[in-house]
Design a binder for these strands. Structure first.
Lengths: 360, 360
DNA sequence: TGCCGCTCCGTAAACGTTTACGATACAAGC
DNA sequence: GCTTGTATCGTAAACGTTTACGGAGCGGCA
């Protein structure tokens, strides 16, 4: 197929795309020299380098990425794969902050970040396979790890560099960063126990996301650790959204003996829970103590402000970048090359006004 | 540099990546035949095709995207470039819905969507140049178009297929989809005028985003059109966020003669404005009529619900995809090939409870 | 003069595909 | 038997880079 260099059909014919070959011909030098000049190698005279740079600018030349990565075996890109679950608003706001930190981190290292949307959760695995096999990126970041996550098994088997945002029971020995759900559960229970609460409920996510199990287990361990009575009926798995929090509220107040305090696995739920309380004429912090998880930008709207655990999400994003790069031979800084980073990310306590001593 | 096919250093040596050449050698056929078999061409016997498919699966072969796009001149990807402005929450929630529609649309056509984050607004142009020149994607979608947007000039000059989400004064004859700000402004003013309001303020964005000017201008035209007094002091440009809405509230109530109704360019502002009203003991809909723009998921939390104009964002995303594909020769469906789609996207009125007749 | 080393540049191979073209084998038609 | 057509496959070029290697030119030194 003879694809001659296309011209626009307009009156001023204009070359669509100039290759390094044409640039070299235009300069009367070899393409090797052009490449060396553009890539800042030393074995080219300063004079020709300037000539090349000037001509490249004049002709609007820029290297073709496909040719480049084909030859070098490296794309210079990092992909983050995000399930765009319809309701799971986690992708929306919290993640944007993590993303910004990650992006800035990669930007400093001349790498580009591309976010790929895998669509609804059930397609996540199929999508990953499609994308990973094509080697669009030098490394992958997967999010919202499931309790058993076939993506992890696949990536391990194929030896594709990746880091997981969240743990999983699948595979082992792979890099991950996860929020310190255990630490939060313990600190939350300690805080509430210190206020005098003994009957504490927990709201965790109903999906297969790994942390929903981790958090529930950690909660139980903490309750027992502090010598509080643990009632399995007070561990409720609801939808991971504000609607889930609303449902949670309805559930606990339908109990013969409602809890006096609750711990939420995230703050989306706080929004709905507040709504549920309001409908009953109850006040957060007085009639029910609420401790949330990661601060969610929109929960600033809530009054009274939610007592929660939080962290600097952009820093977390940057750390994800570090963990990923350490597993990519071509991009790993010498000091961390080959290191497998597995890290629980600490959260700090932020006192709000949604908690207090039990009322009765 | 002889990069022999690498092996892992583990005990069970495993080929990292198998190329079409090795697959062909393993099958004792030519690489041409393998390629034809995998790509579903007709000039290969059904028997060999099955053999090839089986072997490809067994060896875990999948084609290298760089080689593929180098040869074909097409990447099969579409890039959406998103400024990740720190405060402009527009990127966060509204955009996710548009994205999902766009993703599904492209997915049906075997194209992949990558979202690229250009960082803070001031870097948007530099980032676009970097990314566009490398031809990572067959087409680009740019968002948050500025009043004068150098990105558009650049893309037009380089003949790179793109569609803009939002109009601009830069360039012309390029495809875009934009919300019907003019229609909304007129309908909003008509609605409020019908309720008896004469003194109406508008809150628009303080940034250089194009629609903030369009909206303000359309508002003025509508006011004059309905024979209402137009007071330039009632056109306020505030930060495009809930904080901006809060500031807007403080501004109008500091006026000697506050407006009785307001129109907001988006609903983030409604959140802050409600806060401002609440602090003054005022009630939306009774003390101040509020008409918002695109419904924002989190504004569901507001009570009373905001009267606003909205639309099905995923459909809009799909339309963006159509407009883009029409400009990409390799991907355009025959019926729209070469068409330049420029479209104002209609919004529909949604009656809430944040408006009513003026009080005094 | 002969040799060495350095600077600069050209040559060509290689990365992994796709695909136009030609070659082969075989069946069908005269 | 010869020609023609069809099905199937191999060959090789091409996409746009990067880079190992070698060669030319030149100055310095013994």
């Amino acid at each position: 197929m003879p694809r001659t260099n296309a011209y626009t059909s307009g009156n001023q014919k204009r070359r669509l795309r100039v290759s390094i070959r044409e640039l070299a011909r235009h300069l009367n030098v070899s393409i090797g020299t052009v490449s060396r000049a553009l890539n800042g190698r030393s074995d080219v005279s300063e004079e020709t380098r300037q000539r090349v740079l000037a001509a490249a600018d004049a002709l609007g030349y820029s290297p073709n990425q496909s040719g480049r990565s084909l030859r070098q075996g490296v794309t210079g890109m990092v992909a983050l794969i995000l399930p765009t679950s319809g309701k799971t608003a986690l992708a929306d706001t919290i993640f944007m902050s993590v993303l910004e930190g990650l992006r800035a981190f990669l930007d400093d290292r001349k790498l580009d970040l591309m976010v790929l949307l895998s669509g609804p959760e059930e397609n996540a695995y199929a999508y990953l396979r499609r994308v990973a096999a094509r080697r669009l990126a030098d490394g992958l970041i997967i999010a919202e790890t499931q309790r058993l996550d076939p993506r992890i098994d696949y990536l391990l088997e194929k030896d594709i560099p990746f880091v997981a945002f969240g743990r999983s029971r699948s595979g082992s020995g792979y890099p991950w960063i996860d929020l310190d759900f255990e630490g939060v559960a313990e600190a939350a229970v300690a805080h509430l126990a210190g206020l005098g609460h003994r009957r504490i409920a927990v709201a965790t996510a109903a999906s297969d996301i790994n942390y929903s199990f981790v958090f529930a287990d950690a909660f139980e361990a903490a309750m027992r650790g502090f010598g509080l009575p643990f009632d399995p009926a007070l561990v409720l798995r609801v939808e991971n959204s504000d609607d889930g929090g609303y449902a949670f509220g309805n559930l606990i107040f339908a109990m013969p003996e409602p809890p006096t305090a609750v711990v939420l696995v995230n703050e989306f739920m706080a929004i709905g829970l507040y709504r549920s309380l309001k409908e009953r004429g109850l006040t957060p912090g007085r009639d029910l103590s609420i401790v949330g998880f990661q601060e969610e930008p929109n929960s600033r709207l809530l009054a009274p402000p939610v007592t929660c655990f939080r962290t600097a999400l952009p820093d977390l994003g940057a750390r994800l970048g570090e963990a990923l790069l350490a597993t990519i031979p071509a991009h790993a800084p010498p000091e961390t090359a080959g290191t497998i980073i597995q890290e629980l990310w600490p959260m700090e306590f932020a006192q709000g006004q949604s908690d207090g001593p039990p009322r009765s």
